[in-house]
């Protein structure tokens, strides 16, 4: 199913600056997210990825510039799994129901239960309503929090490091899930450290290190020049099956790698 991208931004950051005390962690960041987009933000630790999300969600004020979220936009926020208290006494059903705070009582209504069932079925979690969150697999745990965000019927889904601390299989599950949600029309914004497992599969990437270094599809952003400016260290990029693969080790002695890089550079130059 094709995804329609609306030209009117849901989120508009213009020359945004964010500071903790006197020190700016973000400077002059301009980023517009339109309805239907699937955007990943990459950058090293301390590059301001989480601060940018916090500014967008309104938990951090802009010191300069502006952040505008279109009026009435519902944000579904999925925290890092590492930040969740997995020992908290709570079942999957309770995790979802807590977001509907307009209804105060503990007991869910019939329509809420029907909606819950639909969301859980859609994410492959059917029948787990009564399970404690710790009793789930890594992939199911991440999906529960996506389900909670989806249960709030969000206009945009924001995920903070969705593949942080998960195994390879779970990472695949999450990637498939997010692609599926995007194909069904969800707008998604996420941060990630995972350049090969997640970022390279996204349609749009923003490379961030205090400021926006590059913004575009992975083929234009996951290139050695941009990555060196973003991460402050030389990184090599290979291409496999039409996807860029970032190597974070020093393979410069490899003749094969040098040839491949040379070939990719000449291909890029000829495209330009």
């Amino acid at each position: 199913m094709g995804v329609t991208i609306n030209s009117e931004p849901l989120i508009r950051c213009d020359a945004l600056g964010v500071a903790y005390g006197a020190g700016f962690v973000l400077e002059n960041v301009t980023l517009h997210i339109r309805r239907g987009e699937f955007v990943g933000i990459v950058g090293p630790s301390g590059s301001g990825k989480t601060s940018l999300l916090r500014a967008i969600t309104g938990s951090l004020a802009a010191a300069r510039g502006s952040v505008e979220v279109t009026r009435g936009t519902r944000i579904g926020y999925v925290p890092q799994v590492e930040s969740v208290d997995w020992n908290f006494p709570i079942t999957v059903g309770e995790v979802l129901a807590m977001t509907r705070t307009r209804r105060h009582w503990p007991r869910t209504t019939r329509s809420e239960r029907a909606e819950m069932k639909e969301v859980l079925e859609g994410l492959g979690l059917h029948g787990l309503e009564g399970r404690h969150i710790r009793e789930l697999s890594g992939g199911q745990q991440q999906r529960v929090f996506v389900a909670r965000a989806m249960f709030g019927k969000p206009d945009i889904l924001i995920l903070d490091e969705p593949t942080s601390g998960v195994d390879v299989r779970t990472r695949h599950e999450i990637l498939h899930l997010l692609r599926d949600l995007h194909s069904k029309g969800s707008t998604i914004l996420l941060t990630t450290h995972d350049l090969n497992g997640l970022a390279s599969h996204l349609p749009r990437l923003v490379c961030l290190n205090r400021e926006v270094i590059a913004d575009g599809p992975p083929r234009e952003t996951l290139i050695p020049e941009v990555l060196e400016r973003t991460y402050g260290a030389p990184l090599h990029v290979l291409e496999h099956g039409g996807m860029p693969i970032v190597l974070d080790h020093d393979y410069t002695s490899s003749e094969v790698l040098r040839d491949t890089e040379r070939q990719m550079r000449s291909e890029r130059e000829s495209r330009q």
Partner: peptide
């Protein structure tokens, strides 16, 4: 009882509760 869900949300996940407008 009346603010059960809000209390639960703020206790379990204060960060996301704040983002959600609680």
């Amino acid at each position: 009882l009346f603010a059960y869900r809000a209390f639960l949300f703020a206790t379990f996940d204060p960060q996301v509760a704040t983002v959600s407008g609680e």
